[in-house]
């Protein structure tokens, strides 16, 4: 859906993006991760032509974006930035209605869409639609920012650290609803984050950037199991990389469901829980094994400490 082909961008002597080739298939989520200054935001801003590439080309749905009028391209792509940038003189409803209005949707359709999106991001329209941005908390503003980016039914969503200003529990809620939205609408998402846990939680693939170069792509489990270089390993926690690996794998990947299940004490853990959670329970409960229940069929199983450290 969105494809970078040997894309480069320099700012004076700084090579912000250096021959990046990356393919994000339709309906998937790609998390751009990397240390600060590694070129993540620049790559995102090249995709909606807020910046023009010096070399290489970017294809959206097979079309070179250099051949598309920037304004039309941007209306097809939702854009969320960390500093949100809500329009301070407009109500929440009008902010969310921005792109549908630019696209010339009929008023009734815009109204319905705004209400739907505000509900989706957990800000009921009745109590929030007519507020102004300065009457919202930082987290609420970020949610409005996400709703605004989604309003025009974009095929592609570009998100630059969209949940930075939200407290951790709310952030997890927003990450879950973003994943739901993505599954339901099939939107292709390119998301910048420096939070490893967030990237794992949102699923999809990692693209690891360092000094403008793309070091590695792959699922969280792949990248964490086989970091391609020293820099990648360092970014994912250095000596603590193993702990991040536990976050990227779930109980069902390692548990033994072959009958007959041995008798194990304790409440069963869900097969969808992360291995990190399983380890935490083992530590807290002082056991080296946990009973497991697989969710649709209720199949019982067992997870041992040895399963966690299996390569």
């Amino acid at each position: 859906m969105i494809r970078f082909e040997a894309v480069s961008k320099r700012f004076g002597a700084v090579s912000a993006v250096d021959e990046v080739t990356l393919d994000v298939p339709r309906g998937t989520l790609c998390a751009l991760v990397g240390t600060s200054g590694s070129g993540k935001s620049t790559l995102l801003r090249l995709a909606n032509r807020l910046l023009e590439a010096d070399a290489g080309r970017i294809l959206v749905d097979g079309t070179d974006i250099a051949t598309l009028p920037p304004v039309e391209l941007r209306r097809r792509m939702g854009y969320v930035i960390q500093s949100v940038g809500l329009f301070p003189h407009w109500t929440v409803a009008r902010n969310v209605a921005t792109v549908p209005t630019l696209l010339g949707w009929p008023a009734a359709r815009i109204r319905d869409r705004v209400a739907e999106l505000l509900d989706l991001v957990g800000l009921p329209a009745e109590s929030h639609a007519h507020r102004y941005p300065d009457e919202l908390s930082g987290g609420q503003q970020q949610r409005v920012g996400v709703a605004r980016a989604l309003a025009g039914d974009p095929e592609v969503l570009l998100m630059d650290e969209p949940f930075g200003a939200v407290d951790p529990p709310t952030r997890r809620g927003l990450q879950d609803s973003l994943r739901d939205i993505q599954r339901r609408t099939g939107t292709t998402i390119l998301l910048v984050t420096h939070d490893v846990e967030e990237a794992i939680r949102l699923g999809g693939t990692f693209a690891v950037l360092h000094q403008g170069r793309l070091l590695q792509t792959g699922t969280p489990a792949q990248v964490l199991a086989h970091p391609a270089s020293e820099e990648v390993a360092r970014f994912f926690g250095g000596p603590l990389l193993g702990l991040n690996r536990l976050k990227a794998l779930c109980v069902g990947d390692r548990a033994d469901f072959t009958a007959p299940p041995p008798a194990v004490d304790g409440a069963p853990i869900a097969a969808g829980a992360t291995l990190e959670e399983a380890l935490a329970r083992m530590v807290a409960e002082g056991r080296a094994q946990l009973p497991v229940r697989r969710s649709p069929d209720g199949q019982p199983g067992v997870l041992t400490l040895a399963d966690l450290v299996r390569p």
Binding site: N48, L50, V71, E72, L73, R74, R75, Y79, I81, S83, V84, G85, L86, F87, P88, T98, V99, L102, G145, R148, L158
Partner: peptide
């Protein structure tokens, strides 16, 4: 504010809009 301008551009406003 710069973020407001960036959001406006990113949303697809024309320069005149």
């Amino acid at each position: 504010p710069a973020p407001v301008l960036e959001a406006a551009d990113g949303s697809g406003f024309s320069p005149a809009g």
